[in-house]
């Protein structure tokens, strides 16, 4: 069966964890044949130490390992490096375990022995997930960077408006004149490169940002 790989997925680093060396190296060879960069680990701890900062990678882990089971690796990654997708492979995989793994954030669960296609499908889904996660991360970083250019007063005015308050209410709450409010609002939107506060709210949602950055110590008026 022909599998088209090149041009779609080329730049992702695949980390393979399995305490069974035969399974580990054979999987490594197969993934390598997809023209992907591969690193092999015999335990979860080694893997966690080796995970790269940039996050352009995915993890294929065996479930059953005596020092750190696959489920534990999965939960650690979803907590600390949620942008990295995890694929679990297991000789025992049944429906129950699969559901549990998927709920915990696994991209796919493969039962050994799996076919080349199953593996590739899983890798593709993982790459997509990684793409989305990284992009969200990037947007978040971009938004945060722009927000950090705001002064504290501009930030306060935007916060007030984003909460759905009218300019009068903002003026009353912050103790400034209506004119001042409008001045800061215009300046803030200009700095953010936006035309209205609704744009800001949308970007917040896309980036998955939940909190306003603290700018007090950087930009004082």
């Amino acid at each position: 069966m022909e599998v088209s790989v090149a041009g779609v997925v080329t730049d992702i680093h695949v980390f393979i964890v399995d305490d069974d060396s035969g399974a580990r190296t054979s999987l490594g060879r197969l993934v390598s044949s997809f023209s992907l960069e591969v690193s092999l680990f015999s335990s979860g701890k080694e893997l966690i130490d080796a995970l790269p900062e940039n996050g352009r990678c995915l993890v294929i882990s065996d479930v059953r390992m005596f020092d750190m089971p696959g489920m534990e690796i999965l939960s650690w990654i979803t907590q600390h490096r949620s942008e990295i997708p995890v694929v679990l492979v297991s000789a025992y995989a049944d429906v129950d375990m699969t559901v549990r793994a998927m709920r915990s954030g696994a991209v796919a669960v493969l039962r050994k022995p799996y076919s080349e296609e199953e593996l590739w499908d899983a890798i593709r889904v993982a790459v997509q997930a990684n793409d989305a996660a990284l992009s969200s991360l990037e947007q978040k970083t971009s938004l945060l960077d722009r927000l950090l250019t705001l002064s504290e007063r501009e930030m306060n005015v935007l916060k007030c408006i984003a909460d759905g308050k009218q300019h009068k209410q903002c003026a009353a709450e912050l103790g400034w004149s209506l004119r001042t409010i409008e001045k800061y609002r215009a300046e803030a939107l200009r700095k953010l490169g936006m035309t209205s506060p609704y744009e800001l709210v949308r970007e917040f949602m896309v980036a998955g940002l939940t909190e306003w950055p603290d700018v007090r110590e950087f930009n004082n008026d």
Binding site: E2, V3, D20, G22, A23, T25, S26, L27, R29, L30, S32, S33, F34, R64, V89, A91, Y92, K112, P113, Y114, S115, E116
Partner: peptide, 23 residues
Amino acid sequence: AHEINQPLTSVTNLASAVRRALR
């Protein structure tokens, strides 16, 4: 079953890899 599955997995993986290389 597990112990047999491991080498079976290896065999499958390796065969797949060989096939991809031969293609």
